[in-house]
Design a binder for these strands. Structure first.
Lengths: 338, 338
DNA sequence: CTGTTAGCGCATTCAT
DNA sequence: ATGAATGCGCTAACAG
């Protein structure tokens, strides 16, 4: 015989309420017709015993678990966290609980976790990527809906959510222009990244709209502070009269800031700097604070959760949805009043 | 009638293998005596159908779910992540899946999530705190084992894991001493934090062991870069001959670094700086890189997971376990060769 | 060695 | 309006 954890069962509630299991079940689930008095009695007993239905038993015949899986590529990346938080928040109110799986950027582990989630019979899966580079689809034959967050799927039949990086590039440049900067340089990260390319596109278009171009070809290499320092040296040497820099990340922006200081350029008076990501420890902590583009990842996570809900209900949102990003203004671009 | 998700059931495997459900079950679970040939046949069929047992059905009569809950106080804090990763990694190999709950620093929400986890019948719970300040116990009457990670429980009957911050303070000072620094200042965060106090204790003891004291009373206020900048100004003004600074966080250390540069103090030649946390974007990204104390949080998470395993098996590890921290050496304290 | 039976906790017909 | 019976998928006794 298998022991019962000491957890209260529906049978016990029924017994104490003096009704059958079936009636107790109905009462607790607002089913059919149950005499109001009976329902009250059952509810009271359930409450007093702090009864909570065993989700396994319930799931067994319902065929669903009220559970979703979040499959992350790499938890180390800071981009996961806000997305995760956003998703988690959305689910709480919906009574779905979250299984977390961390594939650590390993395809084999990802497959393993995917199987684990499916065998857990999750009702849906959110795949969270650590970059915005498109990723391979998990396939169309999965028994549950899948939503890709941050890194979109490379298959248009999937539902994907990703920040609008083109818009980010535009916003950054438009802001610099509105601050009266016309000699603008761009320093960014790995040129093979979608993020790098789309931000650059947006930036170029915004400049073009104003009849301008960058002071010289963008410098693209790494997402590091060190690269920001190095590239900034180059920029200030080649085009000493530069008065605005659009950095592809806050780390790069911090590097630019330091080099500017070293070379006695005042920020923002001599040169205004815009970063990207709004990683607050970097952007809000620096002196002056960094104006930067915020990708609103928490909101993206929430939307991903909503799409999961909708998918479960049969709504089809196939395609890549690009969510708006926002410019956060701080001292590094403080607008001059005169 | 309730549909079957299309998921393969044990019955189907048994049918195709030409055996009874019971035999199939035994074969797949290495039970009793099953004819080797039969077992192979069952395994083959199961494989070809990519059968995976329904954990709900399994859990229903086993009385356990092979599931653990991680109850975090505040996912925003970066300290959560490595702990979470460490725990998650440890569980993967053990076939336990993780339910993630984020209480966002709200007691009511915490209670809500706790109930949710319990009603899910998790086999254990890890409570992860965002600081190392002791937190209130969830109580002794829970039906499952609980391990507190990072923030220890205030009840000695609980199992708690927390970094050894006293050791961290010692290591920082001992390293500065070994670099030949004897005029050392301390700038740290919120004085009401356990972290602040214990690190300071360790530091003081290490200094005392060398017959020294701080150049003046430690400056304790906020865990911010700005505070690091401000406090450093004070330090350099009051004790111009200071040649070592122990900062209570990497953010503070970055602030100190910047002020040192502004005041034309060379780092590490004129003044060596030690940070705390090894938050790599700050510590490895700076120039020079920051020597800093790493709390080995990922390992702490792994240990928490192990304690959960042990608790499930009945081992009692009650008490606060302080895990060793490590010093990571970088350019900000580069030892002079001469 | 294998199959039959029973039961985990619950929701759901279908009688009453 | 209520209850007895059935089954979700699986594992554990027990019989054969």
């Amino acid at each position: 015989m298998v022991g019962n954890d000491g957890a209260v069962t529906l049978a016990e509630v029924a017994r104490q309420a003096g009704v059958s299991i079936a009636t107790a079940s109905k009462a607790l689930n607002d089913r059919d017709d149950v005499a109001p008095a009976t329902r009250q009695r059952v509810l009271a007993v359930a409450e007093s015993l702090s009864f909570s239905p065993n989700p396994m038993a319930r799931g067994l015949n319902a065929g669903k678990t009220s559970t979703v899986g979040i499959l992350t590529g790499d938890l180390d990346g800071r981009f996961m966290i806000p997305i995760l938080v956003g998703a988690e928040n959305a689910f709480v109110s919906g009574q779905l609980d979250v299984f977390l799986s961390n594939a650590r950027g390993d395809d084999i582990r990802e497959q393993h976790h995917l199987k684990a989630l499916l065998s857990r019979r999750v009702d849906g899966i959110i795949v969270v990527g650590s970059s915005t580079n498109p990723r391979s689809s998990l396939g169309q034959n999965l028994p549950v809906p899948v939503v890709y967050a941050n890194a979109p799927s490379d298959d248009a039949r999937d539902v994907s959510l990703t920040p609008d990086e083109y818009l980010g590039g535009r916003l950054a440049i438009e802001h610099l222009l509105s601050c009266g900067r016309t000699r603008i340089a761009h320093i960014s990260g790995d040129p093979t990244f979608t993020a790098t390319q789309r931000r650059l596109e947006g930036a170029r278009d915004a400049l073009a709209d104003a009849g301008l171009t960058f002071t010289h070809e963008p410098l693209l290499a790494e997402w590091t502070e060190q690269w920001g320092r190095d590239a900034a040296s180059t920029v200030f040497e080649r085009t000493p009269n530069v008065n605005g820099v659009f950095a592809g990340s806050d780390q790069i922006a911090r590097g630019v800031l330091e080099t500017a200081r070293t070379l006695d350029r005042r920020v923002p008076e001599d040169v205004a700097i815009v970063g990207y990501d709004n990683w607050e420890v970097l952007s809000a902590g620096s002196h002056p604070g960094l104006t930067t583009v915020d990708s609103n990842l928490e909101q993206l996570g929430t939307r991903a959760a909503q799409y999961i809900f909708e998918a479960i209900e049969g709504v089809d949102n196939a395609g890549v949805h690009r969510l708006p990003v926002t410019l956060v203004t701080r001292g590094s671009t403080a607008v001059r009043l005169g």
